[in-house]
Structure formats: C-alpha cells, structure tokens
Design a binder for these strands. Sequence first.
DNA 1: GTCTATAGCTTGATAGAC
DNA 2: GTCTATCAAGCTATAGAC
Lengths: 218, 218
Amino acid sequence: MQKAVQRQQTRDRILDAAEELFAHRGYEGVSVRQIMSQAGADVSLAYYHFKSKRDLFDQVMLRKAETLNALRLKALEALERRHPDDAPTIEEIIGAFTKPLLELLADNHEEWQHYFQLIAQINSSSEWGGELMTRYFDPLVSRFIEALRKALPECSNEDLYWSYHFLSGALTLTFAETGRIDNLSGGVCRSSDMRAINDRMPAFLAAGFRALADKPRD
Amino acid sequence: MQKAVQRQQTRDRILDAAEELFAHRGYEGVSVRQIMSQAGADVSLAYYHFKSKRDLFDQVMLRKAETLNALRLKALEALERRHPDDAPTIEEIIGAFTKPLLELLADNHEEWQHYFQLIAQINSSSEWGGELMTRYFDPLVSRFIEALRKALPECSNEDLYWSYHFLSGALTLTFAETGRIDNLSGGVCRSSDMRAINDRMPAFLAAGFRALADKPRD
DNA sequence: GTCTATAGCTTGATAGAC
DNA sequence: GTCTATCAAGCTATAGAC
C-alpha cells in the first residue's frame, strides 16, 4: 500500500510541475528535463509514469478539468433547484459558471492560477483551441447553454452560441492574469483583483447576452 | 537599387513565413530552420537579416501592428470629425476599433488571419501578454478609452478599464478563428463568418460597457 | 548577399543495471 | 521504481569562402 501511495505522490508532483511550467511557457517552451528538475525526480521517471510528453500534457489538462466541470455542474444544479418553476436570471447562470473559478482560486490560488493560465493559452491557440476546449469542456458548456436558452427563450441559437463565445474569450483572458490591465490602467486596476472581477464580469456579459437576444432579427 | 529591392523582398518572405508558422504553433513550437525552409532560403540568411530568432519575432509583431494602429486611429478620427459637438455612440467607437480588422481580412484574408491568430496567443500568454500587448497596442488603446470616457461620462475609470479588458478577450479570441464555435454549435456557427461577427460583437460589447457604467456604485 | 560547414548544446525517448 | 548512460536528432548561431 505504501508503494501505491508514493507512486501517486510522485505522479502528482510531476503533474504539478508540468502544469506550472506549461502555464508559463507553453507546451513547446518547456522540456521534460525542466519539468522533472522542478519535480525533483529523474527524467526517466517521466516516461515511467507517462507515455510521452504529449501524454503528460493531456493528463495535466484532464486532471483539473474533471474537478472544475463537476463543481460547475453542481452550482448549476443547485441554482436550478432554487428555481423549480421559473428560469434563473442570466446573471445567476453566468455566476454559476464563474463562481467555482473564484472559489477555487480563493482556496488555493497558485495551483489553480497556473491551470487557468494554461486554459487561456489553449483556448486562444489556433492549433489546439478548437479541439482541446471541445474535448475537455464542451459537454458541460452545452449544459449551460441549455440553461441560458430557457432563460432567453426569444434568443436564436446563433446569438446564443456567439454570446457564449464572447464570454469564453473575456473569461479565459481575465483568469489568465497577464498583468496587461495593470499596465494599461497605470495601476488603477489589478489583474489579480478577483473582487473587482466578480463585481463586473457577470453584469457585463449578461447585458451582452440580452442585447443580442433583444436585437431585431433581419 | 535592384539589390535593395531584392533585399526587401527576401526580408518580407522571411517575415511572412515566420508570421504564419508562429501563428500556428507559437514562438517555441517553430524553428528558424522551418521558417527559412518555408521562405525558400538558407538558414544563415535569417541571421543576416535579423539579429536572432527573438528579433525576427519582434519584427513580425511590429510590422503589422503599425499598419493596424494607423488604420484604427484613422477610423476613430474620422468618427470624431463626424461628431464635432456631441460624442459618438459606444457602438460607433467599438466599430472604429473592430472594423479595420474586418476590412483587412476582407482584402487579404490569409495574411491577416495569421497575424490575428498570433495576437490572440500573445494576449493570453501569462509570460508575454502583459508586456507585449502593452508595448505594441496600448498607446492606441488609451486613445480609444479616452473616446469611450467622453461617451460614458458617468462611468468610473475602473469600470472603463475592466470593460475594455473584457472586450479585448472577446475580440482576440474571435479573430483567432480556432474553430471551437463550429464544434460547440454543431455547425450552426462558423469561426470564419465575419458577417455574423460584425452583426453581433459591437452590440454585445456596447451593452456590457453600458451595464457597468449604469451600475450603482457601492 | 548567399552559400557550405560546423560548433556547441539541448531535445525526446530508451536500454539496462540494481 | 529509481538510477546511469546514451542515442539520434534537432536546435540557435556563427565563421568563412565566394
């Protein structure tokens, strides 16, 4: 039993190191050697625990996606239970989508920050964005879009998907905490100010959804 | 004179090849050899025309940023000339920010698509996003934010900067054309449908700006 | 300005001892 | 399971002929 525990711990240390380095420098910007050096283990162990560098990357993506998707689904289902007859507001549904991220960051900032930085890069990558985001997140996203459809029955499918797409861009960039808004605003705003984000993002995006839903059809 | 022309042509071919490959696979995912092979020239020529791989990358970024910034400034100034006394609407200002991208894509799709894919990756990169986007785009962005401030005098500085930040995420992801919305929507929406984007993005984002500007202050 | 050739290093991945 | 040692390939960058 002790062996199995240690095995899992080593595996996790490798995944943690890979997550952080991939998040900062991208898949191609990091070598297996650098990952194992940060994990404090020998290079050959990477290939004992994982099939290849690419397999290691996939496991990094998958590990936290499962946790995040489960929390988001739980938040949405709790919201729907509170509205057995009517539909929740757009703000509430978007809140169920974003609140889990804020809570995970509040609990363990560094660890989840690395993951969200990684997701932001993948989402914007022309090579991997379409395939990987679809694989890891779209089943859950479809579930959220269903909820949004019920709350905006007059909204066309196209408007709904484009609205979600704009949301996705704003969300992933925001949680990447690149520091750009700090520079642009001369210090007035800070990338890491999760309270400022929570106060603004759902309202901003919900207004966008409504604007497209209410827009007169051509 | 002929020599100077050929020199410039070779330089441009190298920049074109670098732009396309960096856009698809990122800075670290591409070798100078691959770039020069695509450009149809010898590896050593890369180091004749550019100081290093990183210098080549910087020149790729700079070349089109200058064109794009100039067109955006022209669009904003033309808009302001049409409103000598009153302020333009938020939609019009956002339109002046996004229309140049659509026009450049309409004229020369492939070339500018590569550049926008590159920008999307840089913007979302935790390593480079803050620094490079600031360097290449923030002077112009500050000019746009000034115009938005005039159109939304009741809006706080913080709300303005955060609103622009959400805009930036939505915009760069959209023009990256990753194909994700094609997958998510089951083909209902297409990443490359610039008409659909032009019909929706300014309205979506303008509504977001107004929602934050009108939000009661705590 | 464009080539050949190569220095000096790092890469992903594996074989085999213990 | 964890090490040492290593391979073949690819990398950035430069020196020097023409």
